[in-house]
Structures are given as structure tokens and as C-alpha cells.
């Protein structure tokens, strides 16, 4: 069976609209992950024995269990609790929580790399805890880890096809339906692969540029 360019061209518009959903899920999921991840990292650092310990265990548990199961869990369990969300929102939430655990570890590395003296200086200048984090620690902790966060954005992008398992019409789901209707899987699935390849190679080039920009700043003089 040969690659049929005519048929490939025919499926392209549908795939591109699926790709839009994929990108939406990626961007929204990353926003959740960046916010929740920061919260987890700060709680882990400052939460004391109980809250800090709970954050640590939560991070480790989420990181060692499959995203697919977490997706199913939210998809089937939330409606039972009276929370009805669209499949896309459920998917964004699952992606966000899963990658929040990874982002929390990245933030943690950044927080730990802030010299001890900065904490002491902030305390001796009388900054209250909230301002200490906001004005002294986080502005120094976050820029060096931006490239690492960028790598997780790419990883999340490559995990969005899992949302097809909970009926989201993202690009892989569109390709699968097109394939099932025509019994020609080769063209749509190959196109999806090429789309992922082009986008993630472009994105990793951008991350490398970020590394050149922020990586130098990270090293102490």
C-alpha cells in the first residue's frame, strides 16, 4: 500500500482543527501545571512536617503512576462527586495535575539553588514570609529553571494524545476516526506523527535558545 497524497490532503483540514484542540489543551494544561506546581514546591519547602510531607508524598505518587489512569480516574470519578466537566476540561485538569508534580521538582531545584545568605538577609531586613518568597526568593529561583520547565511543556504536548481515551477530539482521535472510516490509517497517522515531530523539534530549539539566555545567568559569578 502506497502513501496516497490526495487522501492525505483530504484529511489535512480535519487534522489541523484537531491540532488546535491539542495546542489548547497543552497551553491550558501548562498554566495549571505551572501554578499548581509552584504551590506544591512552596508548600513542600515551607509547609512544615505535615503539610510539607503531604506535598512531598503527593508529588511522588503522581509522578510514579500513569497519566492515563489519572485521566480515567478524574473522568469517571468527578461526575460521581457532582462535578460535571467537559472531557477537554477534565483532560486539561489531569495534564495539569500530572505535570504540576514534575514542575514542583523543577521549582524545588531552583529554590534550593538560592544561596542561604539570601534567606538570612531577607529575614534580617524584616520581610514577612510572603514577601520574602515573592520579592527575594522566587525572582532568583525561577529564571534559571525556565528551560527545564520548557522541556516539560514539550513532554506535556506529546502526552496530549492520551486525551483521545476520554473522547476529546484532539488530533490523534481525528486521525483514528478518519482511518476507521476509510480503512486507510497510513496517511492520517503519518501526518499526525510529522506534526508532532515538526512542532516538538521547533520547540526544543526554542528551549535551547532559552538555555543560552538563562543558563548563563544561573551560574554564580
Amino acid at each position: 500500500m502506497n502513501f496516497d497524497w490526495g487522501y492525505a490532503l483530504e484529511t489535512l483540514p480535519g487534522l489541523l482543527s484537531g491540532l488546535v484542540i491539542t495546542l489548547q489543551a497543552t497551553v491550558l494544561g501548562m498554566l495549571v501545571a505551572l501554578t499548581l506546581g509552584l504551590l506544591l514546591a512552596v508548600l513542600r519547602h515551607a509547609g512544615g512536617r505535615w503539610i510539607g510531607g503531604a506535598a512531598r508524598h503527593f508529588i511522588e505518587f503522581v509522578r510514579s503512576t500513569p497519566l492515563l489512569i489519572q485521566l480515567y480516574f478524574l473522568f469517571y470519578v468527578l461526575p460521581g462527586l457532582g462535578v460535571t466537566l467537559s472531557p477537554l476540561v477534565t483532560g486539561v485538569l489531569a495534564l495539569g495535575v500530572h505535570y504540576a508534580a514534575y514542575c514542583a521538582e523543577v521549582y524545588r531545584a531552583g529554590i534550593n539553588s538560592v544561596p542561604r545568605g539570601q534567606w538570612e538577609a531577607a529575614a534580617s531586613l524584616g520581610y514577612p514570609a510572603g514577601a520574602r518568597w515573592r520579592r527575594i526568593i522566587l525572582p532568583q529561583a525561577i529564571p534559571p529553571v525556565i528551560p527545564a520547565l520548557g522541556n516539560y511543556l514539550i513532554a506535556m504536548f506529546k502526552d496530549t494524545p492520551l486525551l483521545s481515551a476520554i473522547t476529546v477530539m484532539e488530533v490523534l482521535q481525528v486521525a483514528k476516526i478518519a482511518g476507521a472510516e476509510s480503512f486507510r490509517y497510513l496517511e492520517p497517522l503519518t501526518l499526525v506523527g510529522v506534526m508532532f515531530l515538526v512542532l516538538s523539534l521547533t520547540a526544543s530549539r526554542l528551549v535551547r535558545r532559552l538555555e543560552a539566555r538563562y543558563g548563563r545567568q544561573a551560574r554564580p559569578a
Binding site: S164, L172, K176, L189, G193, F196, S204
Partner: peptide
């Protein structure tokens, strides 16, 4: 550069057609 699930589907659905 491509997604693991896309790879799995490609090998499972597209490759047999070849």
C-alpha cells in the same frame, strides 16, 4: 520528537496496511 501513543497507533494500525 513524536508522541508514544502516536507511535503505538502507527505501528499497530498503519504498518499492517503495508
Amino acid at each position: 520528537g513524536t508522541s508514544a501513543l502516536v507511535q503505538l497507533f502507527w505501528f499497530f494500525f498503519a504498518l499492517p496496511l503495508m
